[in-house]
């Protein structure tokens, strides 16, 4: 771990979900990094890490889409991903997906410089969040990928914990999956529905004003349940939340 980073540039991999549904989270990620003095490159040819097909058992389709992304990061800059789930796919499953394949070496090399956003902020930038906002109460939901696959869930806690005006409250069964799981929500909608219904209730019970996460997939799932039920805190990606707090609005 280095807090005196020599990084001058990073690539931002925006993820397909953020691209289409939550671009503000992507822009906030870019702005946070730029404000910290990092030159951000957004390769326009990027689309998706391939995870949806990979987790559905369609590995050759996943591989073809992932292969296109390999061309997006030609220089040795870190690849920052504002989603632990997509970062986990790139870091842990790309090498597996390209095993014995002509692109294996390239996949390994890129995987070695993939960072989830909060991981990058804390580990590489020693990012000190600034809080100019009003006092507020938030609950944090870390994705399963952040908690277990990437093991970076303590970074979001540290970042939010560094905001003086923000109080964190903890929901019951905090580390339990929200039930999204990509195509799991489609293939097993009733189980997924039961999971998100309980997750939404446990978060609502905390009385938090906002729910913060490092993954938009979870926020889409839990936030969608709040909307359906007609009550629940506002959902926000950590990048937007940090940016908003630093701007004081």
């Amino acid at each position: 771990m280095s807090n005196q980073t020599t990084d001058t540039h990073v690539y931002l991999f925006g993820t397909c979900l953020i691209d289409l549904l939550y671009p503000d989270a992507g822009m906030a990620s870019i702005e946070l990094l730029q404000n910290a003095g990092i030159q951000v490159i957004f390769p326009p040819a990027q689309s998706c890490c391939g995870q949806p097909a990979f987790n559905s058992g369609f590995r050759s389709e996943a591989r073809e889409v992932a292969r296109k992304q390999l061309d997006c990061f030609p220089k040795s800059y870190p690849v920052v991903v504002p989603s632990a789930s997509c970062a986990g796919m790139m870091k842990h499953h790309w090498p597996e997906l390209f095993e014995g394949n002509r692109d294996e070496e390239r996949a390994y090399e890129i995987a070695s410089r993939v960072y989830e956003l909060t991981e990058y902020l804390v580990d590489r930038l020693d990012y000190q969040p600034v809080d100019k906002g009003e006092s507020t109460t938030v609950a944090i939901h870390s994705s399963c990928s952040a908690l277990r696959e990437m093991g970076v869930a303590d970074r979001i806690e540290k970042l939010v914990g560094g905001l003086q005006q923000v109080t964190c409250v903890e929901q019951a069964y905090k580390s339990e999956c929200c039930g999204f799981g990509g195509t799991f929500a489609v293939k097993q909608p009733e189980i997924s529905g039961a999971m998100v219904t309980e997750k939404a209730a446990s978060i609502r019970d905390t009385g938090a004003e906002r729910l913060i996460s490092q993954d938009c997939g979870c926020l889409m799932n839990i936030g969608g349940a709040f909307e359906k039920q007609g009550e629940g805190p506002e959902c926000q990606h950590i990048a937007e939340f940090l940016l908003e707090r630093s701007n004081g609005s």
Partner: peptide, 18 residues
């Protein structure tokens, strides 16, 4: 489908991140 039995459907943003 089943997604909206438990949740509201997400809407595309006005502009993509690209």
């Amino acid at each position: 489908g089943a997604w909206t039995r438990y949740r509201k459907a997400p809407k595309p943003a006005a502009r993509s991140l690209h």
